[in-house]
């Protein structure tokens, strides 16, 4: 008797689990499912509504970029500032707390070279992957943001007081990696700098800096901040970038409603302090204070995706029937 009861109970439990699984796919039920805030409502047909209905936000990010998007080898979690930005967007779509909303994110690894193609294919709703906004890319995809301004910066010993900008590098020994554009930028902006020391890896430059063999190391601040995080008592970043790399959220071309929504979300995160919290918890670990958040650029999109160079890309402009076909790729009007 008690045995049949146990079996019955376990079956009920299974049903309960199943119902729970179903519920997470249905926003109507999820609202009553213990979330602190109810899910916001979106106009029918918008990308936000479709993502909400689907229950999953597909986000492309990097899995190997320290501080921004890096897979934690211990627990396989993707961590970093880009990931936190994605969580903020997820919260704005699904409601609830940041952690609850994060459950609905499906992270997909997008290395630099495939980002435009993945957006156009519709395999991701958006890409947050240290994605620099520039005109060439704007012809293929649209950008919300920027939510962070990266750029080439200078790393010096923590007690160094005389190097504060790129001009101060004149007459100093500067290290970067062999064949990098970083060295060329320095040679242009500080022609008197001694750039004869170069290694194969940035960690070697860091060793040379610690050994007093060079006065400074220069490359993108994102890389430098990663080095500082690993050696916080030795190094610091000057925090005076001399090139500009605005990071934006890449989305399909012409989806202005989604882009406005993302820009609003970023600005709200600026005001609520969520952006600063996200920064402090990730990039801030390298010992830098959150900068002034960059102003969001609500540029006028050229609308249709420009003729793509390869036929495979043009094919993605029409909605395809591949099960997970992104609603974002379908016309919203």
């Amino acid at each position: 008797m008690s045995r049949t009861k146990a079996v019955l109970l376990s079956m009920l439990a299974c049903l309960g689990l199943l119902a729970g699984a179903c519920a997470s796919e249905d926003p109507a039920i999820e609202e009553t499912n213990g979330t602190t805030e109810s899910a916001p409502e979106f106009e029918e047909g918008t990308t936000m509504a479709e993502i909400q209905e689907r229950g999953t936000l597909n986000v492309g990010t990097k899995f190997d970029q320290p501080l921004f998007g890096q897979k934690n080898p211990v627990n396989d979690e993707i961590e970093g500032f880009d990931v936190e930005i994605a969580k903020i967007v997820a919260q704005a779509i699904f409601g609830g707390t940041l952690e609850e909303a994060a459950e609905n994110i499906n992270f997909i690894e997008t290395v630099s070279a495939v980002r435009e193609a993945e957006i156009q294919k519709g395999s991701v709703d958006m890409i947050v992957a240290t994605y620099t906004i520039n005109d060439a890319r704007k012809a293929l995809v649209d950008f919300a943001g920027p939510y962070f301004i990266a750029g080439q910066d200078i790393m010096v010993m923590r007690d160094n007081e005389d190097i504060e900008s790129v001009e101060d590098l004149n007459g100093k020994r500067v290290c970067s990696v062999q064949g990098s554009t970083s060295l060329r930028n320095v040679e242009e902006q500080a022609p008197e700098a001694d750039t004869s020391i170069s290694f194969e890896r940035y960690t070697d430059c860091a060793d040379a800096l610690r050994a007093g063999r060079v006065d400074a190391v220069t490359t993108d601040n994102v890389i430098l901040l990663g080095l500082v995080r690993d050696n916080p008592e030795d190094f610091k970043v000057v925090e005076n970038t001399f090139t500009t790399e605005p990071y934006g959220i890449g989305i399909p071309k012409g989806d202005d409603a989604f882009r406005d929504f993302l820009n609003d979300t970023i600005e709200e995160a600026y005001e609520s302090g969520a952006w600063e919290e996200a920064f402090d918890a990730t990039v801030g670990e390298a010992g830098v204070d959150a900068p002034e958040p960059p102003e969001v650029d609500r540029y006028t999109s050229t609308g249709e995706a420009s003729p793509a160079p390869t036929p495979t890309v043009t094919a993605t402009a029409s909605p395809t029937a591949t099960g997970t076909a992104s609603p974002a790729a379908s016309p919203t009007t």
């Binding site: 062999q178 004869s196 170069s198 290694f199 194969e200 070697d204």
Partner: peptide
């Protein structure tokens, strides 16, 4: 070459990146 002495191997590595 690993400590940045611009000898033959160092030079060739630099040429390859260029």
């Amino acid at each position: 070459s690993v400590i940045s002495v611009a000898e033959l191997t160092f030079i060739s590595k630099r040429l390859i990146t260029d």
